[in-house]
Simulated scan of single mutants.
Amino acid sequence: MALYGTGMLMTFTEVSPEDEAEFNEWYNREHIDERVWMPGFHRARRYVAVDPDARVKYFASYETGKVADLADPDYMARLAEQTAWSQKVMAGFTKFDRLTASITVDKTHGFSGWLGVTRFFPDTLLMDRLRGVLEEEVLPSLGARPEMLGGCLAENDIEVSNAGLKAQGKPIPPGQTPEWVVLLDGATEAAVRDANERLSEILGEAGISAPGLDQTVYSFLFGNNR
């Protein structure tokens, strides 16, 4: 089964060690359930990095019918009025990054316990060709490897992302450029790590060098759907 739509919210979060226990309880007992039942949302998953040098420790994805659902007025109102528990936990975030993306290539098949996340900023002149290569060759071949289960390409929608920032009263960062994220699902850490490495090689051949890539392997923690 493919993803539950063509929209995806992705968050990268960290808190201080003394706040992690409550952070995980809040995420598992309130936050994901609250989001899954919002208009347009269908499934949410969260992960923890297994790489000790990961840029951000926790990753979460929220699948929506379309990316525009992430600028829905009801959702915007919820962002502006968080629960008391959400306000308490979110005030302790030491790192937070939020992407609202369109899924432009979906070669997924369910989901598994391990996830490779590759973030990069492609040159606009490379986008069409690279998107085609990912759809026709790269993601099908990586997903067909033993213990791999598929992958997708998510392209950040800056306009929708900025709508969320405005709803939370946060400033709009200057000089924004489109960011892409490739997600690779696998049954084992080794399979995902190998797939990440092969993806890095392919992107390098396409003109995106390793210093321009942010790659992390994550382990599944909790999810819910409706």
Score class of each variant (00 low, 15 high):
A187Y: 06
K88T: 08
A54N: 02
S86P: 01
N196R: 11
S200Q: 08
A91T: 04
S112A: 14
T83A: 05
S219T: 12
T11K: 02
F121H: 14
L125E: 15
D157Q: 08
V67W: 09
P122C: 07
V192D: 08
R43C: 02
P173R: 08
S16C: 04
L203N: 06
L149N: 06
E135A: 14
L125W: 09
V105L: 00
N196H: 11
M148N: 04
V56L: 01
L115G: 00
Y62H: 13
N162P: 04
V56E: 08
V67S: 10
R198D: 11
G223V: 02
Y75G: 05
L134A: 01
A80R: 08
G151N: 00
S161I: 01
R98W: 06
F111R: 10
W26V: 12
A144P: 07
R46S: 03
R78D: 14
D19F: 09
E201C: 04
R98H: 02
N24R: 11
L199E: 05
G113S: 12
M1G: 14
V15D: 11
F111M: 07
R35W: 11
I158E: 02
F120H: 02
E155T: 11
T188G: 01
D214V: 15
H42S: 15
V48A: 12
Y62K: 07
E135F: 05
A206L: 07
H109Y: 13
I32L: 15
S112T: 14
E137L: 08
T11Q: 09
G113T: 05
L130D: 08
V192M: 07
P178A: 13
M148F: 04
F220I: 00
D33I: 06
R35H: 06
T94Y: 02
F12Y: 12
R198M: 12
S112G: 03
E20T: 09
H31S: 09
R46Q: 04
E34D: 13
Y58F: 14
F41S: 10
S141F: 03
D72L: 00
G223E: 10
F12L: 12
L70K: 12
G175K: 06
E25T: 14
L134C: 03
V15G: 07
Q168S: 11
I202K: 04
F121G: 10
V117T: 10
A2E: 12
G164V: 07
